[in-house]
Write a protein that binds this DNA or RNA. Sequence first.
DNA 1: ACCTGAACACCGTTCAAGT
DNA 2: ACCTGAACACCGTTCAAGT
Lengths: 195, 195
Amino acid sequence: MEGGRAPGHRAGLTRTAVLRAARELLSEHGLAGLSMRALAARLDVAPNALYSHVANKTALLDALLDDVLAGVETPAADIEDPAAALHRLMASTYTVLLDHSDLVPLYLSRQGAHGPNAQRLGEITAALLRRADVTEPTEALRVLIVYTIGFAAFTSHLPPGAGTEQQPSAAEMRGNFDRGLDWLLTGIRAAADRR
Amino acid sequence: MEGGRAPGHRAGLTRTAVLRAARELLSEHGLAGLSMRALAARLDVAPNALYSHVANKTALLDALLDDVLAGVETPAADIEDPAAALHRLMASTYTVLLDHSDLVPLYLSRQGAHGPNAQRLGEITAALLRRADVTEPTEALRVLIVYTIGFAAFTSHLPPGAGTEQQPSAAEMRGNFDRGLDWLLTGIRAAADRR
DNA sequence: ACCTGAACACCGTTCAAGT
DNA sequence: ACCTGAACACCGTTCAAGT
């Protein structure tokens, strides 16, 4: 009687609740811990009840992937220095991906997300590349995306105590990412200037 | 009596035979089809018999990963143009990875292979970077490896009939890879020249 | 419309026992 | 040393049935 939106005695499961529980399960137990059965158990529901709210596990994961990208910091459309803005945009993407490192392997196996957030980021990046007079903005966009997700995938799989030659620390990888991003953007602009 | 090396009536399983069967299973049914049970069935053996020859599934996959790298074409140690040799080496790696596209996701989740073949390739690449007067050969090496495996991972997951804006064809991806590799090597050399 | 019980067709791995 | 039978503790998904 006090405003609860579930009138009856049913579980009152929601798609939103399913996705939230999936995120919690993921951050607590990793990708391996996110099974449909574990998810159902956490929601006090039979495993197959989930299929009333998500088509299947793949669809659930796709929704999770696109949601994460909402956290990427995007520059204003009329920013002065498009080259610097490109660096910041990719760096922010890298940060956000690593904040959800359990999901990173999935970005790779699906070639990124494809929901509304992913689409928006792609358009912003393409616009910046055009404003930076890059001759092949479509190719450069793909290279930057692959580079960023690939690097995040490598970094996300580091074991907790790392710092050897074979297993660099996350901080070292971050440094490598930034340096490589500079090299890439330098090379892209050199090609544009040469035209 | 005619030279068979298995004297008795046992299966006569070998580590080599297990690995070979795993490669066959992989190329025929993909990574999802490579289960320990399917592998045992193909070898007419109980599932747990495999554990006499490989420690577990992870060890089996690690061996598979390093084996593939034996196919990468390496330049002579005294090649004239180290920059061009670097491009060819990474391009050959990309080709070899895509020839075994089912394994590519595994390279990522384990940050490359770590067997003898992987080690040898790493040393050759590092030597080329030093000969090209790159100021940070270790960082450049990691960036190149991540770039190559990352790109292969993207390409390897393309659905058979591809060619749209969202889903480029494998040929387009190959072009993107080469262009991006040029950009990267250009940026790396620009940093070296600037010093 | 949403949820349950039960089942189907699988996994990787371990253990005790045989030869 | 190598293999088997049997089991343990899981998976994702579907189907028929209930409310």
